[in-house]
Simulated scan of single mutants.
Amino acid sequence: MARFKDYFFGKLISAVDCYDKQPYRDWRTDFVGKEGLIILYESEHKAPGKVFFHMLVGVGGWMHCTVGDWEPGGEKDTIITRNSIYTFSRQHNLNKEEKRILLEQAAASGRMPGDNK
């Protein structure tokens, strides 16, 4: 079970392997450089205090991440999991309508409470 923690609009800057610090060459590359809605959840049972995220880009484009440590940093946020490091920028070019659509999609999917921010 997880508890909704926060969300923000931003861009996935990088997704790298924790061990060799090299960018992934798999499905994650489809999300690097993309702007969207990043939704953070806090684990309550399996890994209390750890955070995981969902990222929504465009219509139905979901990225899911396993639990890790969230390091908010103002303009950049980092989530470090057992195997990966994800870096996000809170800077984006999404307009008001694109933000509204992403929030509606997330709420309709049940991944985010509809009455937040």
Rank of each mutant, 00 (worst) to 15 (best):
A2H: 14
A2P: 05
A2Q: 13
R3C: 03
R3V: 06
R3P: 02
R3S: 13
K5E: 11
D6T: 10
Y7G: 00
F8K: 04
F8S: 00
F9G: 00
F9E: 00
L12Q: 13
S14P: 07
V16N: 05
D17C: 12
Y19F: 15
Y19R: 13
D20S: 11
Q22W: 12
P23R: 13
R25A: 12
R25Q: 14
R25I: 08
R25G: 11
R25P: 02
R25C: 05
W27Y: 13
W27K: 08
R28F: 15
R28S: 14
T29P: 00
D30W: 02
V32H: 01
V32W: 03
V32A: 06
G36D: 04
G36N: 04
L37T: 07
L37N: 07
I38V: 15
I38R: 11
I38T: 07
Y41I: 00
S43H: 07
H45D: 10
P48S: 07
P48C: 05
P48V: 01
G49Y: 05
K50M: 12
V51Q: 09
V51S: 08
F52V: 05
F53W: 09
H54A: 05
L56F: 07
L56Q: 10
V59F: 10
G60C: 08
G60M: 08
G60V: 05
G61E: 06
G61V: 06
W62D: 04
W62S: 06
W62Y: 03
H64L: 15
T66Q: 13
G68V: 04
G68A: 01
D69L: 10
E71D: 08
E71A: 08
P72V: 03
G73H: 07
G74M: 07
E75R: 12
K76P: 00
D77E: 09
T78V: 15
T78C: 12
T81M: 12
N83Y: 11
N83V: 02
S84C: 09
Y86S: 04
Y86L: 11
T87E: 15
F88C: 05
F88Y: 10
S89K: 09
S89A: 03
S89N: 02
R90I: 01
Q91A: 11
Q91P: 00
H92P: 06
L94A: 02
K96T: 13
E97D: 10
K99M: 08
R100L: 06
L102Y: 09
L103V: 02
L103I: 08
L103G: 03
Q105G: 01
A106I: 04
A106Y: 03
A107R: 04
P113F: 01
G114T: 00
D115N: 13
N116E: 11
